[in-house]
Amino acid sequence: MSHFCVGPDMAVTLNFSLKLDDGVEVDSTFDKAPATLTVGDGSLPEGFESLIQGLATGAREQFTVAPSAAFGERNPANLQRMPRTRFDSDIELAEGVVISFADQGGSELPGVVTWLSETVVEVDFNHPLAGRTLLFDVEIIDVQPAS
């Protein structure tokens, strides 16, 4: 057992689960291999990283994470309507379909089709968990200085 605590530049091995506030599980490592990350490497959103700061090996905690500390609030500006002609005819358009777009920097930006008509397609670029309060259950398995 290490005696280190979670902090900057520490390698952390942990199990976690994320649930919606209604108890629906979104993600979990408890039933598979634990996750290993280095604090500050971007693997874990900052709001979650700040919650585990100072925890030591063996700690098991549950946190309620507000949308502002998780994936942000839903932004109405991220709902965009575009002409149906912008989509290749081989793309199957239906509500709930995830389509990947390239942003200005060339990164992939997923959007979910939320509504469509004969001529218009509405796509939601909000993170699927935006606006949701999440339950974050974490178990710290090991903490070591990152090499």
Results as ranks from 00 to 15, higher is better:
96 G>N: 05
85 T>M: 07
96 G>D: 00
103 D>P: 01
93 L>G: 09
80 Q>D: 05
78 N>G: 00
83 P>C: 03
99 I>Q: 12
101 F>N: 00
104 Q>S: 03
83 P>Q: 02
99 I>T: 13
108 E>F: 14
92 E>K: 08
97 V>E: 06
88 D>T: 14
91 I>D: 09
103 D>C: 04
99 I>V: 15
96 G>R: 11
82 M>R: 09
100 S>W: 05
92 E>R: 15
75 N>D: 13
93 L>H: 14
105 G>K: 01
92 E>D: 11
90 D>N: 12
75 N>V: 11
107 S>Y: 12
89 S>T: 14
83 P>M: 08
91 I>R: 14
74 R>Y: 08
104 Q>K: 02
89 S>Q: 13
89 S>D: 14
102 A>S: 07
108 E>I: 15
97 V>R: 11
94 A>S: 11
86 R>A: 15
74 R>L: 14
81 R>L: 07
106 G>W: 00
96 G>W: 06
90 D>E: 10
99 I>A: 06
85 T>S: 06
88 D>R: 13
85 T>L: 01
91 I>G: 11
93 L>D: 08
74 R>F: 10
98 V>D: 03
81 R>Q: 09
102 A>P: 05
92 E>I: 10
108 E>R: 10
87 F>D: 00
108 E>D: 10
89 S>L: 14
86 R>S: 13
96 G>Y: 06
78 N>M: 06
78 N>K: 13
94 A>L: 05
100 S>A: 12
92 E>T: 11
84 R>F: 03
75 N>F: 09
83 P>D: 13
81 R>I: 05
79 L>D: 07
96 G>E: 03
82 M>K: 03
74 R>G: 12
89 S>E: 15
85 T>G: 05
103 D>Y: 05
97 V>D: 04
93 L>N: 01
90 D>G: 09
107 S>C: 01
104 Q>F: 04
80 Q>V: 10
77 A>P: 08
77 A>E: 12
74 R>D: 08
100 S>E: 10
108 E>C: 13
82 M>G: 01
99 I>R: 05
95 E>K: 10
103 D>L: 07
104 Q>P: 00
104 Q>L: 01
87 F>N: 01
88 D>I: 14
79 L>P: 03
91 I>P: 08
